[in-house]
C-alpha cells in the first residue's frame, strides 16, 4: 500500500536528514515509525506526501507517486501537524472546506466531528482548541475522504491517556477494516500497544524494522537465582552469554529452556525466569537518543 524505497534527503552539504530509508506498509497493519526528535521521521513523511522533494529514491502509494493521485484525500488521510490549522476558522468550517475539496457531502464533515468527539466544540474557533483537540480535528480531516491509508505524524502528541486510548481503538478499527496505518512517534511506550510493526530510525537511517513481537522477543531472558554466581558459571559452561543487570539478575541471550537446563545441571535454584521485555529495543532506542547525529548505529534486521 505504502512503499518507501531508498528515500534520501540531503539539505546542503551536511549529513543527510534522511539516508536511504526503505520500508513498506501493508493493508490491515499499523506501522509505528519510531525515532528520537530530529531523526528524519517528519522529513520522510513529508517526502511520502509530496511536500518535500526527495534528493533520491521514491515513495509511492499503490504504485503511484503521491502528486499523481487524482484526489489524494480519497486514498491517503494525512495529518502531519495538528497545529497547521487556520486559527480563525471554526472546527466545523475547517472540515467543511476540506470536505468540499475532497468531494464528500458536508454531512460527512459533521459525522467526522462526532466521530472524533469534537461535536460540542464545532462552532468554536480553532484558536481556542487545545493541542489534543487540534489532533482530533486533524484526524477528522484525515478520515474525511474515507481513505485506504492513514499517515499521521506524532498523532499522540498533546493527547491525554484517555485520548491515546481512544486513538488506539480508532486506528485498530481502521486497520481491522483493511486500512493501512503509518504513524510516527518519539516514544516507544506510546505506540507499543498500538502498532503491529516498527520501523526505528536514528540519524536518518533505519536501524531496526520488523514485527513488533519479533523485535521485542529477540531480547533474550532475565533470570534470577538464589546463588547468582553459581548460575553465571553454569551459563558460561553452557556457552551462553549472560550479563548482570545490576539488581542481582542476569540478562541472558538464550531462550528460557536453555537457561532452565543449565540451572538444573548446576543445581541452581531459580527465583525468576522471564522474557526480557523489549529491553534491547529500549536500549537501542536510548542509544539512538544519546547518539543522534553522531553517526548511524548498527542495523538490526528482523524478518517480518
Amino acid at each position: 500500500m505504502l512503499t518507501i524505497d531508498s528515500l534520501t534527503k540531503r539539505y546542503g552539504r551536511g549529513a543527510p536528514a534522511v539516508d536511504d530509508v526503505s520500508f513498506t506498509c501493508a493493508p490491515g497493519t499499523i506501522t509505528g515509525f519510531l525515532g528520537p526528535n530530529g531523526a528524519g521521521k517528519s522529513t520522510t513523511l513529508r517526502m511520502l506526501t509530496g511536500l518535500t522533494p526527495p534528493t533520491s529514491g521514491s515513495a509511492t502509494v499503490l504504485g503511484l507517486r503521491y502528486p499523481d493521485l487524482p484526489n489524494p484525500g480519497r486514498v491517503v488521510g494525512v495529518m502531519l501537524d495538528a497545529s497547521a490549522q487556520h486559527a480563525g476558522r471554526t472546527g466545523r468550517e475547517t472540515l467543511r472546506l476540506a470536505a468540499s475539496l475532497v468531494g464528500v457531502p458536508a454531512a460527512r464533515a459533521d459525522d467526522m466531528l462526532e466521530r472524533v468527539g469534537l461535536a460540542g466544540a464545532e462552532r468554536r474557533r480553532v484558536r481556542g482548541y487545545s493541542l489534543g483537540m487540534r489532533q482530533r480535528l486533524g484526524i477528522a480531516t484525515a478520515l474525511l475522504g474515507d481513505p485506504l491509508a492513514l499517515v499521521l505524524d506524532e498523532p499522540a502528541n498533546g493527547l491525554d491517556p484517555e485520548g491515546i486510548r481512544w486513538m488506539r481503538e480508532l486506528l485498530r478499527e481502521f486497520a481491522a477494516g483493511g486500512g493501512t496505518v503509518l504513524l510516527s512517534s518519539h516514544l516507544l511506550h506510546e505506540v507499543e500497544a498500538t502498532v503491529d510493526r516498527l520501523v526505528v530510525i536514528g540519524a536518518g537511517r533505519v536501524v531496526a524494522q520488523g514485527a513488533l513481537a519479533d523485535l521485542l522477543a529477540g531480547s533474550g531472558v532475565v533470570v534470577r537465582a538464589t546463588e547468582p554466581d553459581r548460575l553465571a558459571a553454569a551459563l558460561r559452561a553452557a556457552g551462553v552469554t549472560a550479563a548482570p543487570t545490576g539488581d542481582g539478575a542476569l540478562r541472558v541471550d538464550a531462550d528460557a529452556e536453555t537457561v532452565g537446563r543449565a540451572a538444573l545441571a548446576a543445581g541452581a535454584v531459580l527465583t525468576e525466569l522471564r522474557a526480557a521485555d523489549g529491553g534491547r529495543l529500549e536500549d537501542l532506542f536510548f542509544s539512538l537518543t544519546g547518539a543522534a547525529g553522531s553517526g548511524a548505529p548498527a542495523r538490526t534486521e528482523v524478518a517480518a
Binding site: L62, N71, V75, S100, V102, L148
Partner: peptide, 20 residues
C-alpha cells in the same frame, strides 16, 4: 498480495478548488 485497488475517483475539478 499486498496492494489494494485505487478508488476510482476523478481528479478534483478546477472549479471546485476555485470555489473553496
Amino acid at each position: 498480495g499486498t496492494s489494494r485497488a485505487l478508488p476510482e475517483v476523478p481528479r478534483i475539478p478546477f472549479s471546485r478548488i476555485v470555489s473553496v
